[in-house]
Amino acid sequence: MSLIRRTASRWLGAMIRYSPVQCQDWGHAMLRESDFVESNWSALRWALGSMAALCRYSISVELNALDRKCRELSVKRIVRGLRPLLSGVAVALIFLSICIAAFSALLHASWFDQAQQRLADRVLIVAVPETAYLAGVMALWRRRKTFAVGILSSGVLLIVHAIVHFASHM
């Protein structure tokens, strides 16, 4: 086998190895036929043409696969996937609302010392919810991970908000 023919076969062989599995049969078919091409230069031209054909086929196969994947990622599926996450956020918000309501009730209580307002604010609106969120996340992480991520993200948002709030009101 001449150098030109061998080079042509090697190029096409390399292209077959890197093409999608569905295309490889056709690649091998083209490669095998190159053995029957009479002249060396014609064999090289055959291999180059085959590489172009294989490249086009591989691209179309990859695009079809991508199209299928995009269709699978429909809005309905995304919403279904986000439902546990949003539930986690909702539960965290409900708990925070209860804490805020408790703080508000405390402020209106006759026995409450108004000088302790700042401390009560920090405990009821930051420390208590954050502790509850952390406990919830630790309890649910293994069994209901997405739900726990919802609670965790709410906790992170609350702590960031608290840090910004305290920093700007110091």
């Binding site: 056709w26 036929e33 029957f36 055959w46």
Partner: peptide
């Protein structure tokens, strides 16, 4: 029929013939 055989009878190069066969 073989690919090269069809290529010779039609005069089509491999880059044109194989996408058609596929």
């Amino acid at each position: 029929r073989y690919g090269y055989d069809i290529s010779r009878s039609t005069g089509l190069k491999s880059g044109t013939l194989y996408p058609i066969l596929i």
